[in-house]
């Protein structure tokens, strides 16, 4: 199915907003209290046999978009449905659950919590009634213990309690690799070392060969660093070595060719690393570094001005102790 996803863009180099995009960003969502009616503007796209993905908005969470900013979706297997990403809020998760019901009557047996960030885990509450296995990285439980309530309060401030949902913990954790069998296809999970966060879990679907790297792969939207810069470069190389040709990134188009997308990602991370190292070596202070490092990447990424300075701050702290 190829219904065009609405793709409001707010980044240099892609200024041309579609008319629907303008309406979407400028008028419609603003007056909608929940994602319920916004649903007609969202759509899932079948990106492989039985694999459906909804493109997240390339913006930050607002009251109007219910934090529906990540690429979320599901895989329909022989024995049941696996949710690849739950959504950014209870409202977003409920929307996804309704989408699943439109496509299949099979039970929802698995929900993947790809890492600790709110735009990827707060949809999980919508699936608790299905009593699925919640799959997460072995470090996810402690990361959610530390941050879950903190994120929840902030989301409540933005969306209200009813649309935010609970913090849901994994019931199956992956320390290294694990497999889930849906009868006609196997999902292979890999727990990654500190990279985007300290709880990144990726997945490969044997049915399609598609890689689901979650936020280990950002496309178009600037990567946000919250784990380890050096670790992320290592894990990016590992994803490449795993050999899939297509991937569903955590943010960006619903599918991409993995090699060029990883090249863009590592291009940014390398610029961040090398620029930050050079700043530290020259005794450039952190407050000057945030304005100078990786500037040549600015035209390549949406939300660069919002996140690059913070990425430099995180990178500086990691690299100054080298």
């Amino acid at each position: 199915m190829t219904a065009p996803a609405v793709q409001p863009r707010a980044f240099p180099g892609q200024r041309a907003l579609s008319r629907r995009g303008v309406l979407f960003g400028g008028l419609c969502l603003c007056c909608l209290p929940t994602l319920g009616r916004a649903a007609e503007f969202f759509t899932t796209e079948e990106v492989g046999p039985g694999i459906f993905v909804r493109k997240g908005l390339i913006v930050d969470a607002t009251a109007d978009n219910a934090d529906a900013i990540a690429n979320i979706g599901f895989i329909v297997g022989k024995t049941g449905v696996l949710v690849t990403e739950s959504g950014g809020s209870l409202a977003d998760g409920q929307w996804l659950r309704a989408e699943i019901a439109k496509r299949t009557q099979k039970p929802i047996t698995h929900v993947v919590l790809t890492h600790v960030h709110p735009d990827h885990v707060f949809g999980a509450g919508a699936f608790e009634q299905d009593k699925p296995v919640f799959i997460g990285h072995a470090k996810l439980t402690e990361a959610l213990s530390a941050r879950g309530e903190f994120y929840r309060k902030r989301l409540i401030d933005l969306l209200g309690e009813a649309r935010t949902g609970p913090v849901v913990y994994p019931t199956m954790t992956v320390a290294d690799t694990a497999e889930v069998d849906l009868g006609d296809r196997r999902l292979t999970f890999t727990a990654h070392g500190p990279a985007h966060t300290t709880s990144d879990l990726s997945m490969i679907d044997s049915g399609s060969g598609l890689l689901f790297p979650a936020d280990l792969l950002f496309v178009n939207r600037i990567p946000s660093l919250d784990g380890s810069l050096k670790g992320w470069l290592t894990e990016a190389a590992r994803l490449k070595a795993m050999g899939p040709s297509r991937a569903v990134p955590g943010h960006g188009p619903v599918t991409v060719d993995l090699a060029p997308a990883l090249a863009d990602l590592t291009g940014y991370l390398t610029a961040l690393r090398d620029g930050t190292r050079a700043a530290i070596a020259k005794d450039v202070s952190i407050e000057k570094a945030v304005d100078t490092v990786a500037r040549d990447q600015r035209d390549k990424w949406a939300l660069f001005d919002t996140y690059n300075g913070r990425n430099v701050t995180v990178a500086y702290q990691e690299l100054e102790w080298e």
Binding site: D60, A61, G88, D119, F150, Y151, R310
Partner: peptide, 10 residues
């Protein structure tokens, strides 16, 4: 206690 920028929240 509210901040900590992440992908999601400004």
């Amino acid at each position: 206690g509210l901040a900590l920028a992440t992908t999601a929240l400004t």
